[in-house]
Write a protein that binds this DNA or RNA. Structure first.
Lengths: 360, 360
DNA sequence: TTGTACGCGTTATCAT
DNA sequence: ATGATAACGCGTACAA
């Protein structure tokens, strides 16, 4: 296997200078069409592709962008958002010759180190900022590092950093309204981590939808987006003297765990308790009962974030992203609430019902 | 914000040459301890870090490795393997100053293009090969491109490419044996794609476990690792004149869909049908009933694969990986088969039972 | 230890 | 308007 062709080889073959080859390749003016043609043909005959390394050195750009994810493998693996988001990013980056450098870290300290290293090494030209926290130290870190960044968060209120709004609030609001329209008056919420902006924003969307409907705010238990957290929160809600007839969960994972918890207690879903999730995980449609959930355009968000970051790097304005709005997917886990005044008492306190159900 | 310090700045500050700085930094002999000390102090005072770009150009290495994933966002998002695998890779790469370049593509053509581009650009020094297919064209493509690669597959029988064996067969075998020990004699399998090596190897492990126990091979339906596929395969098995009393699924996603399908038909799990999954997804423990599954050491596989690839790039032998064996996690979705000769007929054909169950 | 050529495009400066 | 020439970016490696 012979040595890779270099720009000098092409220049020699085409009988021009290196500079001319560079100009021809990059479509810049100052090269006669005939010459340009000759250069391009020579390049293709030699199978020459500009060396990414040399280009990165001379242009002081790495042609790569970074994504640092601070999540445990479990949290990452249970969330369909990231793969879709990354796929969206990729689809844009590939068109522009950029690569995605992914870092997975497990704690905040490692996260900072990761950004510092990316910046110090000049490994990337910019980064995405996801899973924004309520008092996030990363924006100031990144501006201190001089590393361009695009923030991916529900609320575009981060003045210091350009943001792509991934507003999940309409989705949660739609789920809540759906329950209200079914007749529910006691709609609880199992929230994601209070430390995460999208945990808080989803909670606010639920509360806002209840307010808009003139209903009193239902109970809310703050969990952590995990299955175990969802199960625990559900137990807490069901143990109340006045248990809700419907629960809006901040994600599918908690909703699934919550649904199982309820069914395990002999509480019928949706007969006694309606449940909504968020994310529309692939399993959601294949549960028993199938889970009503909210589908979001994670791929579109990824595309939008990538376009925004690339524009930022080029000093251009970000194109206006057109994202599909979140879509409520109604399935069988939601139904009208149980009759509050039944002829015969159908609903006993959970503690008096059998602990498990036999399905046969 | 001033210009980044360069190696020349450090050399000047320390009163030595660039070469001396390079030697001192890389801990190579030929520099007096006192001089080395002085150089390192100057470097740290100037906040100098070697430029990754310059180093990549001069050493003809990119200090990055690639992972091309050919999956749809849905398939990727429903599978906990990849995040954990990537986390494992990262933990090793970070220690060695390498970065991970991730590409997500949706079809085989784009996959080839992706590898070609990574190689042509010199973007990475090597790649991981995952989701190996039965007649995979990538090994020859990669050897043609001269791109070092490490193969991550259940069977290390790919002579052309070094492989890290991620043998999932013991896990499936353990699940099958567990069912046999419970007394099951009709153990079916819902397989993953026949085109994927790990789809085939899991199937073989199931068949082998039955053979070893002296049982006849049960029915097998080939699906595609998806929830919809798992549901359809389950229907097919349950519609047989002689439905199985237990089903070994090739992954959790199909198992969950299958379990819901069974329950939706009024078939009790595990009373009438035992079910095992594979992956031990986070939701598995929080289903109703909780799913018996197999937990694998995906992080360890990631670490091993990364160590192997780095060794390959350095021309060293790969260190012997010590991986945790797959662990069968027994939960409530498996139980002894229903009594074949009950005093009263407990089991009617599915078609005669109510279509859905009310849980209250 | 030092000096210097080298890796490979990009771009500013010049010449026609 | 075309194109050549040379400096540049920054660390590595080899001869001196």
């Amino acid at each position: 296997m012979r040595r890779r062709a270099t720009i000098s080889d092409v220049a020699r073959a085409a009988g021009v200078s290196k500079g001319a080859v560079s100009f021809a390749l990059n479509g810049r003016p100052g090269i006669a069409p005939a010459t340009r043609e000759r250069i391009l043909r020579a390049a293709s005959e030699l199978g020459w592709t500009p060396s990414h390394r040399a280009r990165a050195l001379s242009s002081s750009r790495s042609l790569a962008v970074g994504l640092v994810v601070a999540r445990t493998p479990e949290t990452l693996g249970a969330d369909p958002f990231f793969p879709a988001f990354i796929a969206g990013i990729e689809s844009v980056l590939a068109e522009h010759g950029h690569a995605l450098v992914l870092q997975v870290v497990t704690n905040e300290r490692a996260e900072h180190d990761s950004y510092r290293r990316l910046a110090a090494d000049g490994r990337v030209d910019g980064v995405f900022l996801t899973d924004l926290r309520s008092h996030d130290s990363r924006p100031s870190l990144l501006s201190g590092l001089g590393l361009p960044a695009v923030c991916v968060a529900p609320t575009p209120t981060w003045a210091s950093i350009p943001a792509v709004a991934v507003d999940d609030r309409p989705g949660i609001a739609a789920a809540t309204r759906h329950l209200i329209e079914l007749g529910h008056k006691h709609v609880a919420h199992v929230a994601g981590s209070a430390g995460l902006v999208h945990g808080v924003s989803r909670r606010e969307a639920w509360a806002g939808a209840l307010r808009s409907a003139g209903l009193p705010e239902g109970p809310c238990v703050v969990a952590d987006f995990s299955a175990a957290g969802g199960a625990a929160a559900t137990k807490e809600l069901l143990d109340r003297v006045d248990p809700p007839t419907a629960i809006v969960y901040a994600n599918d994972l908690m909703a699934i765990a919550g649904m199982s918890t309820a069914i395990g207690r002999g509480i019928g879903v949706p007969a006694d308790l309606s449940i909504t999730g968020f994310d529309d995980t692939e399993v959601a449609a294949h549960l028993q009962p199938p889970l009503t959930s909210v589908r979001t355009d994670a791929i579109g968000w990824g595309r939008a974030a990538a376009l925004c970051l690339l524009a930022l790097l080029d000093g251009r304005d970000a194109p206006d992203p057109h994202l599909s709005p979140p879509e409520l997917v109604v399935r069988a886990s939601t139904a009208p609430p149980p009759d509050p005044h039944p002829t015969t008492a159908r609903r006993r306190p959970a503690s008096m019902r059998p602990r498990t159900e036999t399905h046969r």
